[in-house]
Write a protein that binds this DNA or RNA. Structure first.
Lengths: 247, 247
DNA sequence: ACACAACAACTTGGCGACAAGTTAAGCTTG
DNA sequence: CAAGCTTAACTTGTCGCCAAGTTGTTGTGT
């Protein structure tokens, strides 16, 4: 017989009840985007709890990016951006998918750096501890908003000038094509979730409790079966609806 | 040029820095599962912030299910359960997948109820407003732990005794086979994330900020092309690693 | 010397008081 | 009568104080 993880305190339970109620009002459109939420004082009266309990509940909604506040003014329900349909399991690259769907996709290289030894990454890339591996991070914008961080891990063994070229690469596929590789595929794609680090919150312009969808895959040249890179993409889960239908 | 959603207060920034530091210590195994975290007082001294800021940071980790606390005793890093590999895009049913992998999977029917009109669900099920649709909820346990809520939406039009049969159904596929349907497929599978409601937190025995992976799909009989049900599964994202490799 | 009780120190839980920002209403002056 | 200023009310932001639980140390009694 299972039991509840770490017993919940009374006030945490009340916080969650308040969160539930507000989420329900959002879902049934009693509360509409852009409109003002009841003030802390009003909720204190309604639920008969200390102001701290109400505040914590509202802070949870803020950290999830659902609500924003202005001191002296109030709290407001954020406009919800339309979900972008993303076919996670298709063969088309992210760039092409977005263009197909008519989105304005841009890319910004944010870092290209040698990473310290990481057993998992080295194993996937079939590298040994002395090898140099670069992590190339590119921030993806759709309609001017950052929506994903695209990390490519590439071994210097396979691409000796990747460290020099990395900061200017806008499309990894284009880079590989230029080097003679033409057919890209993956034989392993894993999905998990995480919360953004402070740095990722900055890059993605999101709050700390917006879950990120993490998609990890290897990228193989179809012809030579050569492992080109290990890819780790962090998507803002609130910006996308993911289609994982098999083609 | 994009801008940060709702400006972050100074103390929220500090909270997130503290969360980051602790997460990093967990990741590099400086902090090990089961061990005690530094006390609030110690963190107050280390970061030179009010105790409230430290508390809020630690509460975030608690709500994510990473840490638990005991009044007068301390806060501890939870033992992390081993991730279960789940092939989201394969053709095998969840039941068969889990058995294949050697997990002890059990199912508990938690509700079978008529749902009010919901435009989206009725559209997917090709039902009209007067039709009766049942929502059958089954809680999935692996090794005794609740890990997923499996919701099947079934129209009474297609299955007139679903309301009566629903509470005792352990396998929807077995139920459909019994009625002569043999080949199940889906032509649309969508994935998104959400946070659990209070009720879902109870069912899944998880904290409020554990993201749930929501997988929605239609279920079609391969032979007759008949739409059998609309399926919505809520997975605890922290219990699984999802394989979305295409077969 | 051992056991028990009391007290102090450490730890987390709960909440109110004060600070700072915004807006509206009322009063005064031109 | 209108405009501007001041004050009050409303709203969110910040933080310390007190309560409750746990553990360790010290002192006293047998």
């Amino acid at each position: 017989m299972w039991k509840m993880e770490g017993d919940e305190t009374i006030s945490t339970e009340k916080e969650n009840v308040i969160v539930d109620d507000i989420m329900r009002q959002i879902a049934n459109q009693t509360l509409k985007p852009g409109t003002k939420l009841p003030s802390e004082y009003v909720l204190v009266e309604k639920y008969r709890v200390p102001r701290m309990t109400v505040r914590n509940a509202l802070m949870k909604l803020e950290e999830q990016g659902i609500v924003y506040s202005k001191q002296g003014k109030g709290r407001y329900l954020k406009e919800e951006s339309k979900h972008i349909d993303l076919h996670l399991t298709g063969k088309i690259s992210f760039t092409d998918k977005m263009k197909q769907l008519g989105y304005d996709l841009t890319t910004k290289n944010v870092y290209c750096e040698e990473i310290p030894f990481d057993a998992k990454i080295y194993r996937i890339l079939q590298a040994v501890e002395g090898d140099t591996i670069f992590k190339i991070g590119r921030l993806r914008y759709i309609n001017g908003e950052p929506v994903a961080i695209h990390n490519s891990f590439v071994s210097e063994t396979n691409f000796p000038v990747i460290g020099k070229d990395g900061p200017a690469i806008e499309s990894m596929f284009a880079y590989y094509r230029q080097l003679g590789y033409e057919e890209f595929s993956s034989n392993k794609t894993l999905l998990s979730t995480t919360f953004p680090t402070v740095f990722e919150q900055e890059l993605l312009a999101c709050k700390s409790m917006v879950p990120l969808i993490v998609v990890e895959s290897n990228c193989i040249d179809g012809k030579s079966e050569k492992l080109l890179e290990y890819t780790k993409i962090l998507y803002r889960s609130d910006k996308f609806q993911y289609d994982i239908t098999m083609d």
